[in-house]
Amino acid sequence: MKNAIIFTGSGGQGVMSMGIMLAQSAVESGRHAVYLPSYGAEQRGGSAKCIVIIDKDEIVSPMAGSGGVLVAMNNMGYEKFINELEPGGVLLYDSTLLTMPIERDDITKIGIPADALALEVGSSKVANVIIIGALIALTGIVTQEEFQHSLDKKFASKSDAVRAMNAEALKRGMAAASQSK
């Protein structure tokens, strides 16, 4: 399914949070969205994957076997799920943690040093928000404001510093994607 975005990485990297927040911002801005997680029995360190489908029409089935965009947060995500990216699709990856050679030549590859940028912003925990920023800049699937709204909701009970760090990460991700174009 061309309109499916597949998020992959390891448990603990915020892979599922990325998907949920993106789906939420799409629904709140009037589109239809589904989020389908899949993971092993492990909570941390095991592979993590979720699918988000966003459409102007109702989504008939969330059971996408492949997608037009694959987000890989590390080697594990890339290795395990690269075959689920459709030919002509976009691989968006964290180039700090995805260090393997990328073999496929029928796709567009966009590497963002998300983990390194996240550390600059304050914590590697916001690497996922950096990648979402890049995804938004590249696809326009939701606007910065729409996603910022989801972030604000998610971190409503956290400190101003945490909220500011996430907002900054979103901006950095968007800027990094613009440079990579």
Partner: peptide, 9 residues
């Protein structure tokens, strides 16, 4: 389990 874990409107 798909329907149990899927998030939708």
């Amino acid at each position: 389990g798909c329907l149990g874990s899927v998030m939708e409107e």
